[in-house]
Structure formats: C-alpha cells, structure tokens
C-alpha cells in the first residue's frame, strides 16, 4: 500500500526514552506492597469472622469473603474514595478483588448519563468483562482436561 509507510524514527524514540521521567521504583513498589498487604489482611479478618461466627469453610468461606470484599470495593468507589487509594497504591489496589469491583462500578457510574440500560448496565463490564470471559473460559478448559484425565485413568 502506498500510504502505509513506516513512520518510526528510531533516533527520536530513543531520545524520548532518555529524557522521559521515570517512575520512582522503590516508592511505588513499597506503596503497592503496603496497601495490597493491608487489603488482604482485611480479607483475612473477614475469613476469621465467618469461620468462627457462621461456621463456614472451604469454597463457601472463600466465596463469602470475596463477596464482602467486592461490596467494600464497590462501596468505596461509590463514595469516590477508591480512585484516591488507587492513585496512592497503584498495583496495590488494582489486583485485590476490591480492584475488580472498582473496575465494574467506575464505568457504570460514569456512563449512567447515557441511561440505565445502555449506559449503566451495558458499560459495567467494559473493563471487567474480559476477566469474566477469560475466567470462565479457562475454568471450562481446566474442567475438560481434568475430566479427560479422570476418565482415562
């Protein structure tokens, strides 16, 4: 094609790389570690609570803990606090399941202006949709592989 020339100017890109500011490595890693660890400790607190108060265990316990954590993530996003935590913590608040809740609620709030069906409900999974797609697909794959293994042996 005549129009698809290569626009890449290696010299310039290298020069840009050398003058661009770098992220402060140790500071961001420490913050992510701190906040991520704290969120997990809150989760562990709920684990103890449900284990002793409701007598849950195993998958049920894990499921209830994640539901509560998702509630907290959604709640803090609704209050407009979670993005501030995220600004401070980076990966520390993205990776915990509260970050998953944040990625569901934040576009939902944002696109509410386009209506409750095509705005809020449709845009809910703009960021989180792939997580569910890949999660379900990988679990089906794992299930089939293990089914095969159990039935061969």
């Amino acid at each position: 094609m005549e129009n698809s020339q290569n626009f890449i100017n290696e010299n310039y890109l290298n020069y840009i790389k050398s003058v661009s500011p770098r992220t402060n490595e140790s500071k961001t890693l420490f913050r992510a570690f701190l906040v991520g660890g704290l969120i997990c400790c809150i989760g562990q607190g709920f684990r103890y609570l449900f284990e002793y108060a409701l007598g849950l265990s195993g998958n049920e316990l894990a499921a209830f803990v994640s539901a509560v954590m998702i509630f907290l993530g959604a709640f803090l996003t609704g209050l407009g606090v979670y993005d501030r935590i995220g600004k401070f913590a980076g990966g520390g608040s993205i990776v915990p399941i509260t970050g998953f809740a944040n990625s569901v609620v934040s576009p939902a709030i944002e696109f509410k202006t386009e209506g409750y069906i095509y705005g809020l409900a449709a845009k809910m999974f703009v960021i989180a949709g792939p997580i569910i797609v890949f999660g379900v697909a990988s679990s089906v794959l794992v299930g089939l592989v293990y089914y095969g293994i159990y039935n061969i042996f």
Partner: peptide, 17 residues
Amino acid sequence: ERQYRYPLELGCTRPPQ
C-alpha cells in the same frame, strides 16, 4: 478523560509523563 482514557472513579495511577 472518559472519551480517551478511563472512568474517573477507576483507581489507576497516572504515569509521570
């Protein structure tokens, strides 16, 4: 922000550049 980047309430960091 909403057209080009992310929802306002999404907790992600802005790179220094």
